[in-house]
Simulated assay, not measured.
Amino acid sequence: MAREAITGLVLAGGQGRRMGGQDKGLLTLHGQALAARALQRLAPQVGATALSANRHLADYQALGVPVWPDTLPDQPGPLAGLLTGMTHAQTPWLASVPCDCPDFPTDLVARLAAAAAAQQADLAVAVAPAPDEAGRWAPKLHPVFCMARTALRADLAAYLGQGGRRVRDWLGRHRTVEVAFDDGAAFLNVNTPEDLARRHAG
């Protein structure tokens, strides 16, 4: 699959509750906004990039890519951002990543695309080791690291219109392939001020 067939979307539309309400995409790591870092990492992997955001739109627009607010009210979660991306994208595929994961793999989209093509799937999502509450690492689905056919927009709109919010439940409605990645650290999110401090120190 050619990367020109894929629009890359950085999801930055959350409410940042565990960050005390701060807009996570605009927090800086080593002098660079997290959203800018994600865009920089995603751009070589796709044909075009855009950003899903609901606050501080002018700050995000300054990053030089289209900024798409949710089409649904009340910021109902990452699926709303995905729907907005599907609605605006001019390509048959959309690849999404969260703004708060600064080190996701540089071959993420290529591997998701290859798996989707091989399995004739509608969606491909990443699976990678993640620590549990006891600190043990085990495989975990990372559903916002997702590649989806934009033709699914009507189904996703219907799911959200019925009150659906869980990404996994929506994935289960379609032919979805899970793609295993070995480096779990590449998928670690910056969810709290402590997480961000550790990244600065690392």
Rank of each mutant, 00 (worst) to 15 (best):
H142R: 12
L141K: 03
A113H: 02
R175I: 07
T91S: 07
P76L: 00
Q90S: 12
Q162F: 08
Q90C: 11
L83M: 11
D183G: 09
L123I: 15
P139K: 03
A121T: 04
D183E: 13
R136T: 09
A186V: 12
G163N: 06
V167H: 06
D103R: 15
C99N: 05
A89T: 13
T150R: 13
L123Q: 15
T91I: 04
V179H: 02
Q90G: 14
P92T: 05
V144E: 13
Q119N: 11
T91D: 08
P92R: 11
D132C: 00
Q75A: 15
R168W: 07
A128F: 03
A134C: 03
L82V: 15
L82E: 14
V177H: 07
C146E: 01
G77M: 04
L94D: 00
R168I: 13
L152H: 07
V109H: 06
Q75H: 15
D182A: 15
G163S: 04
P76V: 11
R173V: 00
T84N: 07
R153W: 06
A110M: 14
R166L: 12
L82G: 07
L123F: 10
D122G: 12
T150G: 06
A80E: 05
Q75L: 08
F104G: 03
L94G: 06
G81P: 11
L82A: 12
P98S: 05
D74A: 11
Q119L: 03
W93Q: 12
A80L: 13
A185M: 09
H174T: 05
A185C: 06
V125I: 12
R153C: 04
L123C: 15
V179W: 04
T87F: 00
L112M: 01
G77N: 10
A80M: 08
C99T: 10
M147N: 00
A151M: 09
L112V: 02
F181K: 02
Y159I: 02
W93F: 15
A118I: 10
W137I: 00
V127T: 14
E133W: 00
F104L: 07
M86G: 09
G163E: 13
G85N: 04
G164C: 03
R166T: 04
R173S: 01
A128Q: 00
D155H: 07
H174S: 09
V144L: 07
A89N: 05
L160P: 08
L156A: 01
L112N: 04
R165P: 00
A151F: 02
A186L: 00
Q119R: 13
P102M: 10
Q162T: 04
A121V: 02
S96V: 15
A134W: 01
T176P: 02
V127L: 09
A157L: 05
P129C: 08
A186K: 03
D182K: 09
A157S: 14
A110Y: 13
R166C: 08
L112Q: 03
R168Y: 05
R149T: 01
D103E: 11
V167P: 05
L152N: 10
E133H: 13
W93E: 09
L83N: 09
G135M: 02
Q162S: 11
Q90M: 06
D100E: 15
D107F: 12
V97S: 08
D74L: 04
D107M: 03
L171G: 01
A114E: 15
V125R: 10
